[in-house]
Design a protein around this nucleic acid. Structure first.
Length: 285
DNA sequence: AGCCAGGCTAAAT
DNA sequence: ATTTAGCATGGC
């Protein structure tokens, strides 16, 4: 039916590729020659902002582009999301600072594994660890002629077979046993990542925190970035700082109260609000 | 050199 | 029930 092509144009307004791909939700994108290059599943992709949308190129011919639209969420109604944000100064400032920032819809296993690796690591370092992991244990994917080799994110079964030592050698330190055991649990289907989105947020979160190295913050990242729960609100050091400085200036407020505030103030798209605050905090000034 | 990084966990209060 | 140290590693 559908023709094989290596290019597609996705019409969309208000989509800031740079903010979206480099805001710490995904760790495999690189800016190059005015575009962004990365791997989605088994596909090497290059993305470029064009008038009225995003131009995408792959290395291998593609019949069905659903995977790309799904990943980028180009059909999401950003206007409706922004409209539902609380009508206050901090959110106005954050939205003004990075309008066009979007949430991706990532593969749950890649997202989970990446965020298990994220704890007390800077984003650059997470990117380095993930890159090593892919080179060593991922599958080779087709790249354009003359381009360096590229690799898919290793699936849970591939990592479940490795030794803790092999993972540790990717410079992930004390996170290695957590990643290994999580890979084994997912591979044995002790938890079904693909079905999390069919549960309630609370039930899905309860499932995730059974995994080693996964607490509330990382669980919320997976719920938000991979399972489509837009109410999930990961609170890391940056967001904690943003909430304190923007909403409770010159006051000492306990962490518990901040969490309570975060859980009630931001509405149905709280996760989106969180990403705006996170990116605003990290890139302003 | 010392501090901190998109935290989690077990042990100690 | 709440707080705290330890956990590897690398960048600044």
């Amino acid at each position: 039916m559908s023709a094989l092509t290596r290019q597609i144009f996705l019409p969309v307004r208000d989509y800031d590729l740079a903010a979206t791909l480099a805001s710490g939700q995904a760790f495999r994108w690189q800016a190059r020659d005015g575009g962004w290059e990365g791997i989605i599943g088994p596909h090497w992709v290059r993305l470029q902002t064009r008038d009225g949308g995003i131009f995408a190129e792959t290395a291998a011919p593609v019949a069905d582009w659903t995977w790309l639209k799904n990943y980028l969420q180009t059909e999401a109604d950003l206007g409706a999301v922004l409209k539902a944000f609380p009508d206050d100064e901090p959110m106005h400032a954050a939205v003004t600072h990075c309008r066009g920032l979007r949430l991706l819809r990532q593969d749950p296993w890649e997202c989970l594994a990446s965020f298990i690796l994220s704890s007390t690591k800077q984003i650059v370092q997470i990117q380095q660890i993930v890159a090593l992991l892919c080179e060593r244990f991922g599958e080779r994917v087709t790249t354009p002629p003359g381009r360096a080799a590229a690799f898919s994110f290793p699936d849970c079964a591939a990592l479940a077979l490795r030794s803790e030592r092999e993972l540790r050698d990717c410079r992930m330190g004390f996170r290695a046993p957590n990643l290994l055991r999580a890979a084994q649990m997912v591979a044995r289907r002790e938890i079904d990542l693909a079905r999390l989105h069919t549960l309630s947020v609370a039930a899905a979160r309860h499932e995730l925190v059974r995994l080693p190295g996964v607490g509330p913050k990382i669980a919320n990242c997976v719920l938000l970035f991979a399972s489509g729960f837009q109410s999930a609100f990961p609170v890391d050091v940056w967001v904690m700082k943003a909430l304190r400085e923007l909403y409770f200036p010159r006051r000492r407020v306990g962490e518990k109260r901040i969490h309570q505030f975060a859980a009630t103030h931001f509405g149905p798209h709280a996760g989106y609000a969180q990403q705006y605050l996170f990116h605003y905090m990290r890139t302003k000034k």
